[in-house]
Structures are given as C-alpha cells and as structure tokens.
Design a protein around this nucleic acid. Structure first.
Length: 431
DNA sequence: AACTCCAGCAACCGCGACATT
DNA sequence: GAATGTCGCGGTTGCTGGAGT
C-alpha cells in the first residue's frame, strides 16, 4: 500500500454526495454539514481513527466525526478501518493458496467480494476485488476468458435443460454425462458405500487402504476439463450421507488434450486427474438433499450445485505436488444447521502418495469431527473465516470440494493454455 | 533523461438492506 | 407502516510508481 501522499486539499468536500438509500453521513443530514475531507488519509487521521476505535470499538461510524473531530464521513472511516487499520490485516500479495481459494470462491460466488473476504483471513473485500479486476484485465488483454470453455458450454447446456421437470440435480448430472466430452472411465473403482465414504472423510488412511486394496489407477492422470466440472459439489454430500453409488467410482483416463488453466483437484469433481464419482443413482431418497440444495439457488448457483461451475484449484506449486485443502473441516452437529469451522491450511503437501501416507496426526486434520447434519437447509447458514459459523449448503459444497481436493491426483497444470469463453454470463447470471 | 503506458491500489460513490423511531 | 438512520456491498475513479520506448 502506498503511504498517504499527503493531504490533497482539493479533495476536500462534503463526503456524502450520498445516496438515495440514506445519507451515509448521518441519515437526515444536519442542516449544516461540516466540510469533510476526502482523498488519501494522513497518518494523523489514521491515528485519530485508531484511537477512537480503540476507545469506542467498531461501529457507529458516523459518531467518529462528531466525537473525534476527524473530518471524515462515517463511511470513509469505516472503509479506512476495514481496509487498512483493522488488526490482523494481511498485507502483501496473495499467496498461491489464497489465489486458489479466490478462484474457487469466485467461480462459486461471483462478485461477492465480501463473502469471499470472509473466507480469506486478513484479506479485505477491496483487496480481493482489486486482485480479481486486475486479473480480469490481464486475461482480457491476453484474449483469455476467465473460465474454461468447458464451463461455458455447460452453462449453455444447463440453460437448455431448464424447464425440465426432472429434479435439477438429477437432470444436470445426467446431462453432463450425456455430454460428448465425457469420456468413459479408464479405471473402475469399487463401489463405495456411505459408511465407507464417511470413514474416508474422517480418516484418510482408510482411504489409502481402500485404494491400495481396490484401485488400479495411479497418478498422475491427465485432467479432462469436462471431467473437472462433472461431479457436483452436492454430490459430495450425497457421497457422504445418503447415496448408494451405483456405478463404480472411476478415475478418468486422459481424455482431453487441452490443459486447463485452472486445474481441478477435486476428487469428486473430476473425471480426469482425479477420482471421479460417477453419476449418482438418483432414486427416491437420493435426490432429496440435493434437491433441497438446488432449491436454494438458481442460475449459476444451480450449476454449482450440479458441480458444473467450480473453479478448480491452481496448479501445484511444485512438480508432483498438489494443493492441500485450503481449509480444514470440522463439522459440528447442531439442530438445523451445519456449523463449520474452517481453518486455513496453507501448506502444500506432496502428491497423493504423500497424502495417503499421512501420519494419523495429519489425518486428523481432515475433519476430525465430520458429522454432517442433513437438516441443514442452507438458509441462514453463513461461513466466515476462521470463526465458527453457520454455513450454507454452498459453503458446505465448497468445503467438500476442498476436502476432496486432498485426494486429487497430481496434474501437469498450467495457466492460460486453453481456450476460454465469456465469463460475464457466468458471474452475472448468478444470484 | 524524458515521456508514455499501464498495473495496482486506495478511496469514493451509489445503492440496498436492515434497524430504529 | 412510514420515515429516518446506519451500515455494508459492489462498481468505479483517480492517483502513483514502475516498465517500456
């Protein structure tokens, strides 16, 4: 951040030209509004604001000016505090892990910067927004859209499917699998049952044992973009609780010549490069949760539920490595919601063999208390970084993806090497 | 060395949601 | 229920410094 470049008196102005919705400088604006300064903050102003917040706490920002003599509108004070003065702010460039998370979150949330910031400890919405916007500019300049053509195609597909009476979840699942880009599995894994999956979630070593005894695939596997989007986040929920995976788990063979800019390391979200859960058998009882999730959102949100739009994690930081889950999960049961405690884990680990060789201690970092309450309806579930909070089914899906990512294969990923389509359709159509 | 271009960033603006009166 | 007050979000603007010419 640049240091305030001195006071620019020419910026002095009445702060809120503000808004229809309410005068941000105190609602019914005082008849005589003091001239409030605008422009860069000075260290002296920072000090005043810091001191004020130290004494009075956050909130009631409009009182700052009244009580501290600071010639700044409340809005400006709040922004300054939130973006620069607040403790525990993380400054500097984004780490690869953070970038990965941003990609994931943006793919899932669109331009919901504040929500994204809530999942990036120490980062502000403004920072993330700026980061994203510059990334957009870069990509646009390079002639590259943000999201893979595959995702775009799936959006189209999904749109075409709208209006079909079938459960969206089931429809989407099948429509994806009907897609011509879907390649048959090269490796068949044994049928997984609910209790097995739950066990794997709780103890990756069990997964290792399971794979050792049952699987014939070996990493690295090439990622198929279609694969990368194939398996739903929500399906992970199914996997955890109430499905029977009628077709076997599969690991996708190399089927897509293009490299993805944004690789998928989602176990459940890939048909290549990782283990991919097959289409679920969507019989009665199996679609229930998914349907509930799907009812929660429309448009892209729905696509996410279907697993169509999930920005994969970035390439491994080193050869044969892949991203650790960005978050640890700890689900705590509660009456009507899933409490999720998310802790950023920013340590890349070695490839899946390393994962599978995790010591029990490491293993316990994966949801030690993976108890998923099936009564979560998503509404009112919120997620915030680091703190215990309610979580939406979206969030849960994300976390499941992240969890799943621990099991992904190593990939030969690179950025910017495949064709892209437009992205506004993706982000704008959501929510 | 001077100039231009551009990326990155801080701050502002407009608006909406929610709370309070 | 309406008006008022507060807060927060997302989009946009403008400044700055570095890179390129």
């Amino acid at each position: 951040m640049r240091a305030p470049v001195g006071v620019k008196e020419e910026h002095a102005a009445i702060c809120p030209s503000s808004s229809a919705g309410g005068l941000d400088n105190g609602g019914a604006a005082p008849a005589v509004q003091a001239a409030l300064k605008k422009g860069p903050w000075t260290p002296a102003e920072d000090a005043i604001l810091l001191d004020y917040v130290r004494k009075n706490g956050e909130g009631n920002w409009n009182a700052v000016q009244k009580n501290s003599g600071l010639q700044r509108c409340g809005k400006s004070c709040r922004l300054r505090w939130a973006n620069h003065l607040r403790p525990n702010l993380k400054k500097g460039s984004f780490s690869p892990e953070e970038e990965a998370l941003i990609l994931q979150l943006h793919a899932r949330l669109g331009n919901k910067w504040a929500r994204m910031a809530a999942q990036l400890p120490g980062r502000t919405d403004n920072e993330i927004k700026n980061y994203w916007n510059t990334r957009i500019k870069r990509r646009q300049r390079a002639g590259l859209p943000l999201y893979p053509a595959e995702i775009q195609r799936q959006i189209t597909l999904k749109n075409q499917k709208q209006g079909i009476a079938m459960s969206p979840a089931c429809t989407a699942q099948h429509s994806l699998l009907d897609s011509t880009t879907f390649s048959p599995p090269a490796v068949a894994l044994p049928l997984l049952h609910q209790n097995q999956i739950s066990s794997f979630l709780q103890d990756p070593t069990q997964l290792k044992n399971f794979l050792d005894s049952s699987c014939s695939f070996h990493p690295p596997l090439t990622v198929s973009p279609s694969a990368a989007t194939l398996f739903p986040n929500a399906a992970a929920l199914h996997a955890v609780r109430d499905i029977e995976l009628s077709p076997p788990l599969v690991a996708q063979s190399p089927a897509y010549p293009e490299k993805m800019e944004l690789p998928s390391t989602q176990l459940f979200a890939t048909t290549g490069g990782g283990i991919q859960l097959p289409p679920l058998s969507m019989g009665q009882g199996n679609c229930g949760l998914l349907d509930a999730l799907l009812q929660e959102t429309q448009g892209v949100g729905e696509l996410f539920k279907d697993g169509l739009l999930f920005e994969p994690l970035p390439p491994p930081t080193s050869k044969s490595s892949f991203m650790d889950p960005l978050c640890k999960l700890s689900y705590s049961p509660c009456s009507d919601e899933i409490l999720l405690r998310e802790e950023a884990v920013q340590k890349p680990v070695a490839g899946i063999p390393a994962l599978l060789d995790n010591t029990p201690a490491q293993a316990t970092e994966v949801p030690a208390e993976t108890v998923i309450h099936d009564s979560c309806n998503g509404d009112g579930c919120e997620l915030s970084n680091g703190q215990s909070s309610e979580v939406t089914s979206d969030d849960l899906s994300l976390e499941m993806q992240q969890l799943a990512s621990t099991l992904a294969m190593a990939h030969d990923w690179s950025f910017g090497s495949c064709s892209w389509d437009n992205m506004p359709l993706l982000t704008r159509s959501s929510f």
